[in-house]
Amino acid sequence: MEESIFEAKDLTKKYKGTMALDCVNLTLRRGEIYGFIGENGAGKTTMIRLITGLSFPTDGKMTLFGKSGAKELQKQRARIGCMVETPALYKNMTAQQNLEAQRIQRGIPDKECIQETLKLVGLTDTGKKAVRHFSLGMRQRLGIAMALLNDPEFLILDEPINGLDPSGIVEIRELMKRLNRERGITLLVSSHVLSELYQTATQYILLHQGHVLEELTQQELDEKCKRHIAIKTNDTTKTTTVLESALHTTHFQVMPDGVIRLYDNLDNMEDVARVLSQAGLLVTGLSLAGDSLEDYFLHRIEGD
């Protein structure tokens, strides 16, 4: 059984009449990169605040590294690295001094980790420049460096590519993947740039109006978003038989609403239509379909 890093049971957070999280049940397993998806106000940052101890749940239970209870959760947070919303930086200090403050606070004995972390995020040449003079992208990188300094087991990044230029986005994406692959760090990444998240995450959590709408793996998402011919006929069973016998394919899936998703013959839509008609089926829908993560997310929240 895979070890769970974080578990939420009926986790609820209410702010003056607004339900930010409503009985959320969630399990994050070690070694995955979780993409946290949701509109503004869906509850992503609230969830991150609860995990990091910046906020308290109204109800429900949290377990971090298998431990629960306020004292234990507090202790376990030492194993987390996080950047919540905008990077929290000492603006009058340099990048190195920011990390030195973090090193002291975290009780890390090895001073070498500062240079290593700066190198990791590409901030080695900032010298004596105070953070207040940094660009948004540089601040973002430093925020990630602050989160990484203690070599966390669980890294939480809220909008990590905010303000980064295209090459910076690629670098941070690769960094996240490398941290996951080489150090086994579990990541929880929230972002509005879903195309970017799609290239990083191995698991997705769709949050909508304080509820977990869906949890799915990369494979499941690929399956659901895959390009296909969506076929709707008057007889689903007969259609599948025709597809198998006439087109010699089993690469299709019958969806709960009766739509058949055919994943091959994508370039032969006319043949598919002809075969179905010849079999005496009434074709009520035949179209080429396929979702991006954005499309899929939008369809899901519209259907909720």
Binding site: G53, L54, V84, A88, N150
Partner: peptide, 11 residues
């Protein structure tokens, strides 16, 4: 600036 939160999120 949220810098105080480093200590809290560090447990």
């Amino acid at each position: 600036d949220g810098t105080l939160y480093h200590e809290i999120t560090a447990g």
